[in-house]
Design a protein around this nucleic acid. Structure first.
Lengths: 138, 138
DNA sequence: GTTGAACCTATAGTAACTACAGGTTTTATA
DNA sequence: TATAAAACCTGTAGTTACTATAGGTTCAAC
């Protein structure tokens, strides 16, 4: 086996990823079905490692497998444009910002509870946490 | 049936939640086992609706069922001492802050990548977003 | 040639739902 | 009052993105 080829365990180690996760990625189709040894062991290349790192990083950034499939199409197929990618990334930041805003509100609410807390329990009709979260939405 | 009581379908509608999800919440114990009609239909009250809204909102904020159980203790268990409640609330804020930090990092990463991207009809081969995710990083 | 690590496939389990099947209750209308 | 449709019931299976386990095979070093 050449130095640029390796088995799944090595790939897993290099990408900080479990072997089973790579199997799973293969099943979903975002990782390719690689060539095998006579005995059936998967043989990976450096570009497989690169692809897997891309997948892991994208997952960290909150993209799901479906979205990563879309992103990988940009790489795998020609004829796509940068704007498509930017749009997806921007959509992602909007989602993230929404979550941050919500959490900041929750944190504020919890802090208020901490400050107001002088003993005894709150009833469901008079709980500052409940109130903080009980926001009607349209 | 009084105006302050309703069946699961109405509760679901009011809380923007599926009937099956309410069943599920009951199974996990974060929603109570409500009284039933002769025929076995669940009867809910306004405070159940309030509780469910709280749960839904907390879920939106990224709390899991276990954490929501903790939050609900503020409401359900009246026998807590002030210090105990305070500790729980403070622990919860730490969790919230962690989530905020994670999301801020994520947003920063996305932004860095977006800012470098010209977008539009540029070729994918030049897209800094793809590059940022795809290229080897130390 | 043997051993042990690493690999293989297949299945089941996880969280937090969601969907469906097959049956019962409620309720509005004829 | 009878009936029909909507809403409810329970229970099971499917979803996503993994993770864990079982039981068996291959690789590679000694």
């Amino acid at each position: 086996m050449k130095q640029t080829e390796f088995f799944i365990g090595q790939l897993a180690k290099h990408t900080n990823c479990k072997v089973e996760t790579i199997h799973y990625y293969e099943k979903t189709g975002i990782m390719p079905k690689p060539p095998r040894t006579e005995g059936g062991h998967r043989i990976y290349s450096l570009s497989d490692a690169k692809r897997l790192k891309f997948i892991r990083r994208s997952r960290e950034l909150g993209f799901n497998i479906g979205q990563i499939k879309e992103l990988l199409k940009f790489i795998d197929e020609s004829g796509h444009y940068c704007g498509e990618v930017k749009t997806m990334a921007m959509q992602q930041t909007i989602e993230v910002q929404k979550k941050i805003d919500d959490l900041l509100r929750l944190k504020k609410a919890l802090n208020e509870v901490i400050c107001e807390c002088k003993g005894g329990g709150y009833s469901i009709d008079d709980c500052p946490i409940i109130d903080a979260l009980y926001v009607e939405k349209q």
